[in-house]
Design a protein around this nucleic acid. Structure first.
Length: 127
DNA sequence: ACCGTGACCCTTA
DNA sequence: TTAAGGGCCACGG
């Protein structure tokens, strides 16, 4: 895959993931999301310590289309519980369908009781 | 190597 | 209260 191109010697310890890619960490965290629960992009970003922000997480999700094992991108929503990425699914309704299949209710492209169903990866990482 | 784009989030008016 | 703008980083062309 990607090798470390150290053109600059002063990389310092900015990245904690030298051997693995940032995307791998993101996928791993997302895969940790239990069935029937949801999380947010910001939570994942914070979990991996990516100050890059939630934006990169969303971008990673976009590439997770062909990631193996399958990445439950449908369980990842924005911080208000809105299905911002639904439009990117094969059929846009697919995301909502998958959520409903897991017992999650969705209304107006928003996860019902998002606050209760919210799953913070950080809590699991602490253990 | 530079520029534009993006499944976001936070601060300020 | 709602609305708007800026900022952050990574990837593709």
């Amino acid at each position: 895959m990607k090798k470390e191109q150290k053109t600059k010697g002063s990389t310092s310890d900015r990245k904690r993931h030298d051997t693995i890619s940032l995307y791998d960490a993101i996928y791993d965290v997302v895969r940790l999301v239990p069935r029937g629960r949801v999380t947010s992009y910001g939570a994942v970003a914070a979990a991996i310590g990516a100050r890059s922000g939630a934006r990169v997480v969303g971008y990673a999700m976009n590439l997770s289309h062909g990631a193996r094992p399958k990445v439950p991108a449908h369980r990842v929503v924005n911080r208000i519980g809105m299905l911002t990425g639904k439009h990117h699914f094969s059929p846009p309704e697919q995301m909502q369908q998958l959520l409903e299949k897991e017992g999650i209710k969705v209304e107006a492209d928003k996860v019902v009781d998002f606050d209760k169903l919210f799953w913070d990866p950080m809590e699991e990482l602490v253990i």
